[in-house]
Nucleic acid binder design. Structure first.
Lengths: 187, 285
DNA sequence: GCTTTAAAAAGTAAGTT
DNA sequence: AACTTACTTTAGAAAGC
């Protein structure tokens, strides 16, 4: 049983936050000329940070959505950085942001190739439609995640709210694939 | 005519009309329409006719593994039926059901002619649509798109060679929307579909491109050799079939260009070339 | 359902050179 | 042909149409 430990990398973390007060988006636009704000097409203002490289959507309600971070910590730091910049810029924010991780996207590589056709028949809650998408879509119940599995043995895991869930999901799938002999190990 | 033993209800497998007395006992809001109305419509010819009840999808839903004609049910139908048995058929107690049925089934009837599919396929599509309706999947969504998706699902399940593009064109719904609704049906109704077989694509492409029988046979050999083994996973079956046919043309000296085959298959020449590379390497051509 | 954000996987597509 | 760019799929939040 070729034991190849999956190589996992967190690619994107989505976090929501709120500063518990309304904010004047037009004022932010005046102070930060680089932000994107087109209320006619989307109510959120796009605030980009170079470090951590993220994009945060800010709404007039004071709620925000931060995307692009590579870890939970980075996502939290990104939100804090945004709030700090707003304050320094003169936006009167009285509270610390309440942050929640909403989704984590990760990519991973299992040790060998996958028999997708067979996997589609054996794995429950999975769908494989090569005319529509090259990967098999598998919905894992615990942790509640969705995994896009490719013939190469690489995959994308999304839906997790904790990094630990990502590792558990990938581990679970790897074990399942080996148990059902759906993996092809070779050069 | 399909009977669901778990609930005792009987419905028309073609139009979804619920016939059983049991449903009617529940009250008018539970009924799509009365038997008399259904028969009127049947006579009018639009939704269906009771004469078709023992065709195609005729199935007894319950702890059995044979359909009404005595043939064993496919594994996918069995798993679907197993799930249906546990469903609460009272999940959607709304009045516009009548209107919904009318629209859905007249559209299905219209698509039947445009796509030239058999009654068995239409019955399956109706069956799937009715289940989607019961589960409330139609609310807030386009009836036409769901009907198209149900029909695509029926084609897939019966291995009737109709592409998403075919269904999209016939129904005037974006291919992307039909695909999205199709995946919704698969997900929510727990349907298991066989993967599209490139072998089934060969005949279609060959006839559209006017290729010879021997070239078709050669392409089938090539596909068989290439065997789902490694080069087909994740690839579009149409692209694979097109590449196999192109290679077969070259081998048989049939003068057809990549463009000819590509157009007949609905893929680009680039895709044929890419699949060709894989076939060449794998078959050591 | 849609709109906007980010990111990966692998396949297919389209426009240029 | 190669390159580039771009779109398909997955999840999730935000406010409003």
């Amino acid at each position: 049983m070729p034991q190849t430990k999956p190589i996992v990398s967190i690619e994107n973390v989505v976090a929501s936050a709120t500063v518990n007060q309304t904010v004047n988006l037009n004022l932010i636009t005046q102070i930060f000329p680089d932000v994107e704000y087109h209320p006619d097409q989307f109510p959120g203002l796009v605030f980009r940070l170079r470090s951590p490289k993220t994009a945060t959507l800010i709404f007039s309600s004071g709620k925000m959505v931060c995307t692009g971070a590579k870890s939970e910590k980075m996502a939290i730091q990104a939100v804090k950085n945004v709030v700090l910049k707003l304050k320094k810029g003169g936006i009167p924010l009285e509270h610390e942001p309440q942050i929640e991780i909403q989704n984590i996207v990760a990519s991973a590589s299992l040790g060998g190739k996958i028999h997708l056709e067979l996997a589609a028949r054996v794995l429950p809650r999975s769908m494989y439609e090569p005319e529509q998408f090259p990967g098999l879509i598998h919905r894992m119940l615990d942790p509640k995640t969705v995994i896009l599995l490719f013939a190469s043995g690489k995959l994308v895991c999304t839906g997790a709210k904790k990094e630990s869930e990502v590792y558990r999901a990938v581990g679970n799938l790897h074990t399942l694939l080996e148990e059902k002999n759906l993996m092809i190990y070779e050069g | 005519m399909v009977t669901d033993n778990s609930s005792g209800e009987m419905f028309c497998g073609n139009c979804g009309f619920v016939v059983s007395e049991r449903i009617e006992e529940l009250g008018p809001e539970w009924r799509a329409f009365s038997k008399e109305e259904h028969e009127d419509r049947s006579r009018a010819g639009i939704p269906t006719s009771l004469a078709m009840h023992d065709m195609g999808l005729a199935t007894i839903i319950g702890p059995v593994d044979k359909d009404a004609s005595g043939k064993p049910l496919s594994a996918s139908m069995k798993s679907t039926i197993e799930r249906l048995r546990t469903w609460d058929s009272r999940s959607q107690v709304h009045e516009p059901v009548d209107r919904n049925f009318r629209q859905a089934f007249s559209e299905l009837d219209r698509l039947k002619d445009k796509l030239a599919v058999g009654d068995a396929v239409i019955e399956k599509a109706a069956y799937v649509y009715r289940k989607a309706l019961e589960k409330g999947l139609v609310r807030g969504r386009s009836i036409s798109a769901l009907v198209a998706a149900a029909l695509y699902a029926a084609c897939r399940d019966t291995e009737t060679p109709r592409t998403l593009k075919d269904i999209a064109n016939a129904s005037n719904i974006k291919k992307k929307d039909v695909a999205r609704c199709y995946r919704l049906l698969i997900r929510e109704l727990d349907l298991k579909m066989p993967v599209v077989d490139p072998v089934k694509c060969v005949a279609r492409i060959a006839s559209k491109a006017g290729l010879s029988e021997k070239t078709k046979r050669k392409a089938l050999e090539i596909l068989k050799k290439a065997e789902e083994g490694k080069i087909s996973a994740g690839k579009d079956p149409m692209g694979l079939a097109a590449a196999a046919l192109y290679v077969a043309c070259v081998m048989n000296g049939e003068n057809k260009t990549q463009k000819d085959v590509a157009e007949a298959a609905g893929v680009t020449e680039v895709t044929i070339r890419n699949r060709y590379k894989g076939l060449k390497t794998h078959l050591r051509l």
